[in-house]
């Protein structure tokens, strides 16, 4: 039961790294990439995603704002905020929105808890 994951990061390198970790955990899942919040919205208009991995530190709209928007649009979508900014405050704000927190740099180990949780959620949604 493959899922589609949207990876939003203004760094191409970071998107590659996140994609690699994801492929290690869920080889079947597909991914769609966006370099900014605006581009993410465009991609979603083209077709919905099941899961979102969002970098926090982006220009214009930051990751938390984008996550808040997506939460409104897709209340059940598993969303993770990815950042090296591990401030307690950021983590708390992510929790408020109902987003998971994944520290940067992204590794399979670091991503595993979120992805397995997301897989469970998706399975129950589709059941």
């Amino acid at each position: 039961m493959p899922a589609k994951v949207m990876i939003v990061d203004d760094s191409k390198l970071a998107r590659i790294v996140a994609g690699k970790a994801l492929a290690e955990l869920q080889p079947d899942w597909t991914k769609v990439e966006a370099a900014s919040a605006a581009e993410a919205m465009e991609r979603l208009e083209e077709g919905p995603a099941d899961v979102a991995l969002i970098d926090f530190n982006m220009s214009e709209t930051d990751g938390l704002e984008l996550a808040a928007k997506l939460r409104v649009l897709y209340p059940d979508m598993p969303i993770a905020i990815i950042t090296a900014n591990i401030q307690d405050e950021i983590i708390a704000r992510a929790r408020e929105i109902g987003a998971a927190f994944v520290p940067k740099p992204v590794t399979a180990d670091g991503l595993e808890a979120f992805i397995s949780g997301a897989a469970l959620t998706l399975r129950s949604q589709r059941a």
Binding site: A14, A84, I86
Partner: peptide, 15 residues
């Protein structure tokens, strides 16, 4: 990106 990760680690820890 490297700078981002390293500086954020330091600054966030300080905060």
């Amino acid at each position: 990106e490297t700078g981002n990760v390293i500086l954020n680690s330091c600054l966030a820890t300080m905060a």
